[in-house]
Amino acid sequence: MSYVVSANRLDDGSVVYFTDQGRWSNQVDDAKIVSREDLEETLRVGRRSEEQNIVVACYEVEVGSGHSIHPVRLRERIRSHGPTVGDHQSRPAGGPEG
């Protein structure tokens, strides 16, 4: 099983993912993929960002394998790609950020 670490950015609430560079990106495809064995360490590093008041509510998201990062749970897929309904599907702009 594989995982990524997600949170919400404190100041704007947007969904972010922890990257290989140790930063936070709005794009799930930028996320650092880790195994179950490495998950705890990645969460620990990610939670430092909570202490630094960069993000809140850091947690793990199980992802499937493939070319792009695909969260297993529907809830996480919606969270990563936005609401599935109507006109309100635009995502906040953003790339890797601290």
């Binding site: 919400n8 704007d12 609430g13 947007s14 969904v15 909570e50 809140v56 509510a57 809830r75 919606i78 969270r79 936005g82 609401p83 906040p92």
Partner: peptide
């Protein structure tokens, strides 16, 4: 966040799936 959350909620501000 633990200190702030109840204050935020008393002003109707939730942290939801995508944003506040």
């Amino acid at each position: 966040e633990d200190q702030f959350k109840p204050l935020r909620l008393m002003n109707g501000l939730y942290l939801q799936l995508h944003a506040y």
